[in-house]
Amino acid sequence: MTFPGLIVLSKFRKSSIPFIAVLIITSAPAIARAQFLHPKISKKETTIRNVIILPAKVSVVRDSMKGPEGMAAESEDLSGRVEKMLATVLEKQKNVKSLNTAGASTGEGDQQQKYSIADFQTKFDDLLPRIMKKRSDVKKARFTMGDEVLNMNLDKSVDAIVFIRGQGQKLTGGKKAFVLLVGGGAAFLNLQIGIIDARTGEVLLYTDPGFKGLGDPTTAVDSLRKALEKGFKKLPVVSVQ
């Protein structure tokens, strides 16, 4: 006994799956995401001139036919690259300077400073799921990390602290073929970036840029730069004095 409808569906699926997969993968290289600004930024009551970028935590896995495999070394490299590229984008597009302070961007410094930074990174990790749950509430000034941020004893000229998180996936050759033939998730890189007021701890900006495709997110340079540029489009440009 056969069901004609099922045969049609089956034939349609067989012929169309690879085509649809290729279409989806090639037509959506960048994920368009929104940015959310604190009223102090959107109303230009506060200006971000100098920031400290804390060590990024970007983790990428290699998805193979035998499951996901860690890419610790590549993730480390990518984290560093995202930090540097973000600093460049902020400086070139927005005139925002990234300052380098001991312990902040190198992760070194004395033990207390090391603990202090680690604790703030953890605090951001705790807050992040709540921000992601309702990103638009950043516009209502709902999220803060508290005035403990002052305990980091950063340079007086620092206006904000930048936290970067990210997850990515690279496909092995076998998995790429599998995705083309059967379907499945493409390679991607999703970032979550929060800018926190260095004096009050308020979340001043939240953005989650990213991109996807069949390439390698750990080595993609242009896609990353474009995603970051898009991700900070709404941040007002600082006038050069």
Binding site: M1, T2, F3, L6, S10, K14, I17, L181, V182, G183
Partner: peptide, 10 residues
């Protein structure tokens, strides 16, 4: 994904 039609496919 490449299952045939009919009851067997189901």
């Amino acid at each position: 994904a490449y299952a045939p039609g009919g009851i067997v496919g189901v």
